[in-house]
Design a protein around this nucleic acid. Structure first.
Lengths: 129, 129
DNA sequence: CGGAATCCCCGGCGATACTG
DNA sequence: CAGTATCGCCGGGGATTCCG
């Protein structure tokens, strides 16, 4: 199993890599941010238009949806296509990169769902102790 | 591939599940928070004492290390053992649950590392466009 | 050694209003 | 339809200090 060895940490330091500028962490941030994972799950079902996404994620605001989509688009995970119709319409879909990303995120989410009983039990024990 | 279907979203709404209280998201937060992943990677190499972790993560503060460890301990991912020696010593290690969690996180991190050239290229194109 | 307590700042995020 | 602009709060997280 890959681990953080002294030499690995030394390598990071030598290259000025820290948690704030680490590119890997920047990608992991898509996982931790509030909406991106849910957006990707919806897009896993096929391309969606802006307002379709808005309706699919009940509590998201237009502002946050736009911002989240922009971040994902910038990293090449989501593709944005504008159709010059009237009224204008925009389609969002997973790129190839996004199609590789999503299953790994879902693997983590599935693990969390499966492990939830043990996690909740641990929390309960911790809170009572 | 699992997706977010209308019925799945309806199920969430019916059970009052939203991004703020979703237990799965609470677990995913360990991935996105600043330090937990790095801590888990270090602990993947075996049990470590508090100050060993402090030295292994060059820029972390005692405050954040303590807080991150507590969160992971609460979810049953990390085990904390106190030895009544002088001076006092505390050992942190992965639980069985944590040993199941770590490889899935690393799978994501490895994907990010492997995909980094394409991601950086996408960012570059986005920022220039 | 392994923390806990306090102070403070910055930025994520929501609400609201406006636009091509 | 698909956004942008502006305001304001509140909480995550760093720096510092103190403790058993």
């Amino acid at each position: 199993m890959p681990v953080v060895t002294e030499t690995r940490v030394d390598f990071w330091q030598a290259h000025g890599i820290n948690p704030d500028n680490c590119p890997v962490r920047q990608v992991l941030d898509h996982v931790s941010a509030k909406w991106p994972v849910l957006i990707l799950m919806v897009l896993g079902g096929g391309p969606r238009r802006f307002n379709e996404l808005l309706r699919a994620l009940p509590d998201i605001s237009k502002r946050m949806l736009t911002q989240s989509l922009r971040n994902l688009e910038r990293d090449g995970i989501v593709r944005r296509e504008v159709f010059d119709t009237k009224p204008p319409s925009v389609s969002y879909s997973l790129t190839e990169l996004g199609q590789g990303f999503l299953p790994r995120v879902l693997a983590l989410a599935d693990w969390a769902e499966t492990s939830m009983p043990r996690i909740l039990a641990a929390r309960d024990a911790y809170d009572r102790g």
